[in-house]
Computed example of a mutant assay.
Amino acid sequence: MSEWLIYRGTGAPHDGISDLPPAPPWRDFDGGPLVPPAAPLDAATERRLGVQRRQARNHRPGTRERELVNAALYLRRPLLVTGDPGSGKSTLAHSVAYELGLGRVLRWPIVSRTVLRDGLYQYDALGRLQDLQFERVAGQPGRYADEPDGGIGRYVRLGPLGTALLPSAQPRVLLVDELDKSDIDLPNDLLNVLEEGEFTIPELERIADRTPEVRVLCDDGTTVLVREGRVRCRAFPFIVLTSNGERDFPIPLLRRCLHLQLEPPDKERLAGMVRAHFGDTAAERHEPVIDSFLARAPGDMRAIDQLLNAIHLTQQADWPEGDDTRQRLTSELLRPLDRAR
């Protein structure tokens, strides 16, 4: 394997991220002071991430996928990943985070109502106002009266993108999921943040002269100090923007990203996904179902969820020998998504 590859796609964790060369001068960020490393995951989070961890361990990217991931790491650029549903776009982010030891993936799911601020931070102005009113009615000092500016930081929470841009020694991994579902303005609104690697929180900027440091909550549950209402990264995060190809993106966004088109997974990659969900021997036991999934006419669209559903159902139900129910249901569950009944 080429020595220049930081991410190798082997599914084995290593400390290769420490060998990442310095950023290009035009992508060199100087945010600080550095925030502490993320705390180890608790048992509940580990259980919740169990399937994602197994998928990350079993993910085996192709040569082009591996090379473009490393190019994005070297150049400190986001990676725009397009492909059919179930082609492994989201798994790629988890694979990079797991192999390079970059902590839990920060996920920002996009819907039609999503705006840039949702990813950067949230300020609960209504909650703060209600607390102040209750305190006045009670005639007692507020719960946070002894904290700077009445504990304003308790009403600010950084979003996934805002947390990823905190100044850290190693890059965080951010998954911006299904960007093509967004309002037409969001891709353009992202441009400045992705280029500058920073953003401001106006509510904290306004009080910076009297309270220069405010402790706020992050998307991953930790708390950090924000200075003068400004967040600027040190290590630019590894950002995966996924798209199912349902719309075109503006040229300025494409110019700031590297583009990876994922082809439908082959039998080897499907087998890895099946092992991740159902155990090490599942791919061999369910090889006929995998073959049925792959046996499609040109242009047919199927999602990995269909394959996983079919395998799960055939594992749970105990049909007698000679009953064709298994085959009939498998055919129904693997019906192409873009073909009318």
Results as ranks from 00 to 15, higher is better:
I311S: 10
R104E: 10
G31R: 08
S90P: 02
G153Q: 07
E287C: 11
G150R: 02
L106I: 08
E263K: 15
T223W: 01
E263R: 15
I304N: 09
Y123E: 01
F134S: 07
L166G: 07
R302I: 14
G159T: 09
L174C: 09
P13K: 02
G153P: 07
P167I: 03
R157P: 04
E99V: 03
L158I: 10
A295Y: 08
D323L: 05
L308G: 09
D209E: 14
Y123I: 01
R335D: 09
P160N: 06
T200N: 11
L191V: 15
V156A: 08
V35T: 03
G272Y: 11
R47L: 01
R255C: 01
E3L: 10
E205K: 08
V214L: 00
Q55P: 03
R128S: 04
A43N: 12
T281A: 14
D219I: 06
N244W: 00
E67G: 12
P252W: 06
H312N: 12
L191H: 15
V193N: 14
H14F: 03
F293R: 11
P160F: 00
R136S: 12
A283T: 09
C257P: 13
A169S: 08
Y74M: 15
I201M: 09
R117Y: 01
A12S: 03
T91M: 01
G103N: 08
L79C: 01
H286K: 01
Q52I: 04
G272I: 12
V289W: 09
P298T: 10
P25T: 11
N244E: 00
I6Y: 05
F236L: 08
P252Q: 09
F238D: 02
P160I: 04
I311N: 12
A56D: 01
G62M: 01
L126S: 11
D300W: 10
A164G: 11
N188W: 02
D180F: 03
R215M: 03
R107N: 01
L34S: 08
S168L: 02
A72D: 11
G229K: 08
L253A: 11
H259K: 15
A97P: 04
P252F: 06
C218K: 07
D189Y: 07
D318A: 14
D318K: 14
R53F: 08
P40Q: 06
G101H: 05
M1S: 12
F249G: 00
H259D: 02
L165P: 13
D124L: 05
H277D: 02
H14R: 06
R296D: 05
N244S: 00
G153H: 04
R230T: 13
A310S: 14
R335L: 10
N192G: 14
S182D: 03
